[in-house]
Amino acid sequence: MEDKVVEIIEKHRKDDAKLLAILHDVQDKFGYIPEDAIKIIARELKMKKGEIYDTASFYSFFRFKPEGRHEVLVCDCIVCHIKGAEDIIKRLEDEFKVTMGETTKDGKYTFKMVEGLGHCEESPVMMVDGKLYGNLTPDRAVEILRRCEQ
């Protein structure tokens, strides 16, 4: 961990806006931001670990515990909402036996409700590992995830 985190920090050493960049890279590397990584960042940037946590915990996409292998963001913004996002969410929750914010028992998916993926022309939408799927119906949403299982 030490070497990997220090390497990430060195990569951003010359950036002016480094903290968020470092946290992103750490999260990409480990799947989350481990406590030990925060301590190393604090040491290297001459900050207190609490100061880093204070910043990191503010942002909704930083996580501090390991999550599922795939991240599923289901949009329930106004547009997706009036276009039926609730039905999609309900269907996904039933199908995968989770509520939004949780990870499936097999550790495969973490579902999150978000509000605004910026693709309102295709509402309702969801994003799986950064890839966007639009014009969803409940069936199609389930089908996309099942297909991705294979």
Binding site: D15, D16, A17, L20, A21, L23, H24, F58, Y59, S60, F61, F62, E115, G116
Partner: peptide, 10 residues
């Protein structure tokens, strides 16, 4: 220019 990626905060 430095590109900065946000982390989820309206």
């Amino acid at each position: 220019i430095e590109v900065v990626l946000g982390a989820g905060a309206y």
